[in-house]
Design a protein around this nucleic acid. Structure first.
Lengths: 338, 338
DNA sequence: CTGAAAGCGCTTACAG
DNA sequence: CTGAAAGCGCTTACAG
């Protein structure tokens, strides 16, 4: 079944292609009568203009792309959901690509999106990304860019993030208020800003409450998964490091740590409290349920798309776009592990 | 920064646009010398042909679309990963849309994809889909279609699925071999073929091992989540229905049931064994860890894309495409809950 | 208010 | 082996 074209409609109604095109786009210089005829007919035959042909003239592809570091990841899936849902409302389609936390792959994926002429790119910078030239590249083309989750001070674009430092502070403060004094931190890798910020929030809470910072209580998770949490906890036990609480950079390492504690019959939260970060589905389903910081992914995704749309409108009106850092609120979720 | 065009290259090398185009596509009627010049230059300036313009001639968009019922869903995320990874290898880009298990939305999403001129659509039919007219619609256009996860006998297309009946049989057989005789089934909704098949596998295992089927031990999960599993288990306790095992249609209801059992201090697996289905990440992380059926999503996704590519090749060679049902192997994963 | 014409950036049948 | 020309399906400046 061949797709209908403007030409087909023009022929059927015995008017010109030009008039059909203008009528469908509501040009003011088409008579109401003609407009009505055209629109009714187009509706009847379910005509949709070919987006590829339209692009060639308008340079709008009505397409955006997302690059995320992980695909099978609760938080990023929530973000996807937010972006896609909002995109649909505005008749946008969304390409998904994954960087696998690799700098090289991230570069390639961005290039792919640029070559597909997307109108905008949504990016969460990979953990291993140490250089932002490829991101500058997006900005140099006329493609819009919105960064989410991972913030970077260095790029000329808007970002939708949370206040990681504040959120981490809240988590650690919560542990302190529960009477904990020897709080370990399972932190993320060294490069990404959010793992740095969560670490800083941890330190600040210790400082503010007069607890001494002990670098031997900080463990790095290079991959943010349960195994790393488990292993770090095992190390703590093996080396008899004294702790009474853990603040983990994310829920999975927290869950890993809890499983190690459970296997060793260490009581949670009485002997060791554990708090995670992100509020993955799993955190409410395990026993004991995991206290955590809720990081509203879907909301962040929606916001990111809205920012993109606004900036696009501004550009179309030739107004100057001001880049902003949008911060989404997080909440402390108290459960049984603290 | 304007994008380069064939024209720019032609001008730079002082040859015609035609020759540039042919050289880049390795036409045999271009001299090796010219080819080399063109290719080297194109490489140097990082030229990529505009895919929208190319589409207008070739009617290949190098774009596919996926419609899944759930976005934040471990199994579907694995499938996404499989399809996207394979698509990338073949220079395809992937649109993601979500039907939210709704028939109406599924219809709309498919129409959207068709209007974006995707070369192929990958679909897991929504639970609420009761009519397949919109799917026939894809087939009527020249768009390729591959169905995955949810199988339907009625559509003229290939599908990549598991043998749900056999997999369910294996799960229930496992419970029986552990000495369980009063096995409840938390089944999925009535419509989708896979929830029917898992139910049939359950019944067949009971039959084969001489256990009587008792319809009062079958509970329907309309939404396949933990809450439904929890609630059904609560009902069983409230109504003092005697069971010694549960086979759940998926991991989440199994986890919900386990949480209800734990709260009531009922020993797993001694008093009640629980087995799930799918092998979500969570099943290995909870305590006790959940036995389940591994359903290799990423593999299914890869296979689905390969099927699409093969059928596309066939079509290009004007050969007849034969639709097949590809079955991916599942494995029983024994853990602590059985 | 309507429409002929140019052009977006490609591909390819055809002529030389 | 090379290139002029037509055409994919739109949009829009321009003429009438």
């Amino acid at each position: 079944m061949k797709n209908l074209t403007l030409k087909d409609i023009a022929k059927a109604l015995d008017i010109s292609v030009t008039t059909v095109s203008k009528a469908l786009q509501n040009y003011p210089d088409v008579s109401p009568k003609t407009k009505k005829r055209v629109k009714e007919y187009a509706e009847k035959v379910n005509f949709k203009p070919n987006s590829f042909a339209a692009y060639l003239r308008t340079h709008e592809s009505k397409t955006v792309g997302i690059v995320i570091p992980r695909l099978n990841h609760y938080f990023f899936s929530s973000i996807l959901r937010g972006i896609i849902t909002e995109a649909e409302k505005h008749e946008y389609m969304t390409f998904i690509l994954c960087s696998d936390e690799s700098y090289e792959l991230e570069k390639i994926q961005i290039e792919r999106l640029i070559n597909k002429n997307v109108d905008g790119i949504f990016l969460s910078i990979a953990d291993k990304t140490h250089d932002l030239g490829h991101i500058q590249n997006i900005i140099d083309k006329e493609t819009s860019l919105v960064i989410f989750d991972k913030y970077s001070k260095l790029t000329a674009c808007s970002s939708v993030v949370i206040d990681d430092q504040k959120a981490a502070y809240t988590a650690v403060e919560h542990l302190i208020k529960k009477g904990k004094t020897k709080i370990a931190h399972f932190r993320g890798p060294l490069l990404p800003q959010n793992s740095i910020d969560r670490f800083l929030g941890y330190r600040k809470a210790l400082d503010d409450y007069g607890l001494e910072y002990d670098k031997d209580l900080v463990f790095i998770c290079d991959d943010i998964n349960d195994t790393e949490g488990y292993n770090h906890m095992q190390t703590i036990l093996d080396e008899k490091i004294e702790i009474d609480a853990i603040f983990a950079v994310a829920d999975l390492p927290a869950v890993g740590a809890m499983n190690c504690l459970l296997e060793n019959n260490i009581k949670i939260p009485e002997e060791v409290s554990v708090i995670g970060f992100s509020n993955w589905l799993i955190s409410s389903l395990i026993t004991p349920s995991l206290s955590t910081i809720d990081q509203p992914g879907e909301l962040m995704g929606r916001k990111a798309f809205q920012v993109f749309m606004n900036e696009r409108e501004m550009k179309k009106k030739k107004k100057k776009v001001e880049f902003k850092k949008y911060e989404i609120e997080t909440t402390l979720i108290e459960r049984d592990s603290t």
